[in-house]
Design a protein around this nucleic acid. Structure first.
Lengths: 151, 151
DNA sequence: GGTCCAGTTAGAATCATTCCAATTCTAATT
DNA sequence: AATTAGAATTGGAATGATTCTAACTGGACC
């Protein structure tokens, strides 16, 4: 079945929400926008379920599958990041500034930590020749201040 | 087991195998020992299933549940490390030297990279005051030399 | 008004583990 | 050698997180 001429993107309706990020023009449906807004307003690195809960107050009929779809779309288009600190649920993060994650092993809290100075992994580790680096994920595990002072 | 089989000497089998690691005295059953040996002989960061396959050639009746139990025991006793590079299966690693993981996003290969110079995360990131760091996991994602030269 | 299509949906299926109850093994004690 | 308590091991069931699937919807273009 030969494809006909490419259809112009939907416009002048709910589907025409767009957001220019990092030079890319990402089409945002209302649901994607809600999911993105919820995540952008969160600093606690919510899971897909957390996001579902929060989005439901504004879009009561959204399904978990849609939340996953939206998160996937937003992730592949670089608007958000998926975070894997331990096995189990993935967490999501709309902080696109360079940062690393501190994970408290006692209370499970995740805190963004921003660089104090420039960091280039190739300076510190001997990577095989020819290796191309696209991103680095640093997770720092330990005990947060609150938990440390309790014990 | 045939009744005529003479009982093996207590010292050569059974629960009395031990391994001193990092000052700890870790009791190793034959299965734990097999799992550890298989992992120590691997450089490809195998999954629990991979390990099951490899151990089976020496201990044909071992079960997946036992492999998971052994991996858990070895992990909590610090003989091996569990690695989470992406969601899905956990991988395991018996390299206890300080190192980070390079993950090729094209072929999935995982390569250990050792430090070229000293590295202290607290120097590079502003962690909240009072934070206690127990370990850091750095994953470097990109394309390995082999995959990079193919494209 | 019909067709197309991306987006959406509920529910089924899958995957990786984790749990569980039953069995077997080991070490210490009789 | 027999007894026993506790640890290790087992297959299978259960769980939890995600991914898949097939049907449905609503607007865009004819």
């Amino acid at each position: 079945m030969p494809p006909s001429t490419p259809r112009a993107p939907a416009k002048a309706s709910g589907l025409d929400c767009r957001l220019a990020v990092l030079g890319a023009d990402v089409r945002l449906t209302p649901h994607r926008r809600e999911v993105f807004d919820v995540l952008a307003a969160s600093t606690d690195h919510p899971t897909a379920y957390d996001i579902l809960d929060r989005v439901k107050s504004r879009a009561p009929h959204i399904s978990l599958a849609t939340v996953y779809n939206c998160l996937e779309h937003l992730t592949t288009h670089g608007l958000i990041k998926q975070v894997h600190l331990e096995r189990g649920q993935s967490r999501y993060c709309a902080n696109l500034h360079e940062h690393v994650h501190f994970h408290c092993e006692t209370c499970g809290k995740v805190i963004d930590a921003h660089p104090a100075t420039d960091f280039d992994p190739a300076k510190f580790w001997n990577l095989p020749k020819g290796t191309r680096v696209t991103r680095t994920d640093l997770a720092i595990h330990g005990t947060c201040d609150a938990c440390a002072s309790k014990s």
